[in-house]
Design a protein around this nucleic acid. Structure first.
Lengths: 225, 225
DNA sequence: TCTTTATTGATAGTTTTACTATCTTAAATA
DNA sequence: TATTTAAGATAGTAAAACTATCAATAAAGA
C-alpha cells in the first residue's frame, strides 16, 4: 500500500472536512468529474447530489457554496503541485535545470495516480486551466485572501520566484515572472485547444511547444548582460 | 462637436442593437458602472433594470443573457483598444518604439473621454482586468468562437504579433508572446492591487513598473543572438 | 450494554436568478 | 390615417441557491 499523500487544507474553506468521511470524499471526487465535464457555471449542488446519491442539503453540510468548493479544489491543486515540484526538483542543484523542470511540470498533462486517492489530478489540472482564475477574479478576493484561501498558490509562486533568483540574483521581477510562467502555462494550453489562432502551437497542439516557449521566455529574461 | 467613434459590433452578440436607442445606450452605460461596482456574478438584469428605470423584460429585448452582455462589452473594449493602438502608433516607423507604445497603452489606466460617448472606458478597462477572461473561459468557448465573438481580441493579438515579427522576424512565438503581453498587462495589474505578494510592485503599486516588467520581458525575448 | 453524539437521509420550504409571454401605450414612419 | 416598432406594465415559470426540521442509524464513550 502506497503512503497516502495528504494535502493540508485551510479549515475555513469547508464546513465539514471532506477528507473525513466517505460522503466527503465522494463529493470531491464527483465534483472534479462533473466540473471537468460541465464547467463550473452549469455545475450545481443539486446535480452533484443526484449524481452521488445524496441530497443537496448533504452537500451544503460540507461546503458553504460552489465558490468555496472551487477555491478548495484550486487550493488542493496548488498544494499538490507544490509537493510534486519539491519532489521532482529535490536533488537537483543546478538552478537552471531546476527551473526547467518546474516549467515542464507546470505545462505538462499530469498523469493520474489512480491508486492513491479519490482526486483525479489529470481532470483537476484541466479544471484549473479553465476555471482556476475564477477562484480569485471576484469581488471577494480581498476577504478570501485575508482568510488565506490563496496561500498554496502564493507559496508555489514564491517557490518559483526563489528559483528565478537563484538563476539570476540581479533580475528585478522574480515574482511577476513566476506568476507569468504559472498563468501562461495554463492560458497557452487553453488557447491552443480552444482559440488556437492566438498561439503558435495550433498545428501540432503539443504541450512540448508551450514548454519551449516558456523556457525561451524565462531564460531570455534571466540571461545576464 | 467631436466625431463619434463607432466600434462595429458583431450582430450575433445582441438581439437589438444597443447603440440604436437611448434605452440601449443606457443599458450599456449602467452595465459598465454596475459590473465595475459589483462584479459580474452579483450583477443581475433585474438590478440593472431597477437602476435605469425599466423592466427586466426591457433588458432582455437587447441582450439574450448576462454572458452575451459581458462578451459584448469585452468585444467593444478590444475593438476600441485596437483603434487606440492604431491611432497612437500610426506614424511611428521604428517597430521597437511602436511595440513599447503598445505595451504602455495596454498597461496604462485609460482616461475616459467623458464627452465622446456613453461608455466609460476607464471603468470598462477595470472590468476587462477582473472579468475579461470569463468571456472565453467557458464551456461554450467553441461555439462562441465559431460565431466570431472573440474576433476583436484575436485581431488585436494578431496586430501585436505582427509588430513582434517586425522587431525580430526570426522569433518563433510571436502570437503566444502577444497574448502573454495582453494577459499579463491585466493580470499583473489585478495581482498588484488584490494579491500584491504575487508581484514585485506591491510597494509602489505603479503601473509604470508593470510596463517596465513587460518591456524587459518582451525585449529580452526579441533580442537577436 | 446503555446512552450520547455525530452523520446522513428524507422532506419541505424560501428567496433569488434567469428567463418567457402577453397586452397596452406611445411614438415614429409610410 | 394606417401601421410598424419600441417600450412600459404585469404576470408567470423553472431552476439555482440556499435554510430548516426531523427521523434513522451508526459509532463512540461511559
Amino acid at each position: 500500500m502506497k503512503p497516502q499523500l495528504q494535502i493540508s487544507m485551510n479549515e475555513a474553506l469547508y464546513l465539514r472536512n471532506p477528507e473525513s468521511s466517505d460522503l466527503g470524499k465522494s463529493i470531491i471526487k464527483h465534483s472534479v468529474e462533473m466540473i471537468y465535464a460541465q464547467g463550473i457555471e452549469t455545475f450545481t449542488f443539486k446535480k452533484l447530489a443526484a449524481e452521488i446519491g445524496t441530497t443537496e442539503a448533504g452537500i451544503y453540510r460540507y461546503f458553504e457554496n460552489k465558490h468555496k468548493l472551487l477555491v478548495y479544489l484550486t487550493a488542493w491543486y496548488w498544494g499538490w503541485l507544490e509537493f510534486q515540484i519539491s519532489f521532482h526538483t529535490n536533488n537537483i542543484t543546478d538552478p537552471i535545470v531546476k527551473l526547467k523542470r518546474v516549467i515542464k511540470l507546470l505545462a505538462s498533462t499530469v498523469e493520474d495516480d489512480e491508486q492513491t486517492h479519490h482526486i483525479n489530478e489529470s481532470l483537476l489540472h484541466q479544471i484549473i486551466i479553465a476555471e482556476g482564475s475564477k477562484a480569485y477574479l471576484t469581488k471577494q478576493v480581498g476577504e478570501d485572501n485575508k482568510q488565506q484561501f490563496f496561500q498554496p498558490y502564493k507559496v508555489l509562486c514564491a517557490v518559483i520566484g526563489n528559483m528565478i533568483k537563484e538563476v539570476n540574483l540581479k533580475y528585478k521581477y522574480p515574482k511577476s515572472l513566476a506568476t507569468t510562467i504559472v498563468e501562461m502555462a495554463h492560458f497557452q494550453n487553453f488557447f491552443m485547444n480552444n482559440l488556437p489562432s492566438l498561439t503558435d502551437f495550433s498545428k501540432t497542439k503539443e504541450e512540448s511547444e508551450i514548454i519551449a516557449f516558456l523556457n525561451d521566455l524565462v531564460f531570455s529574461s534571466l540571461k545576464k548582460k
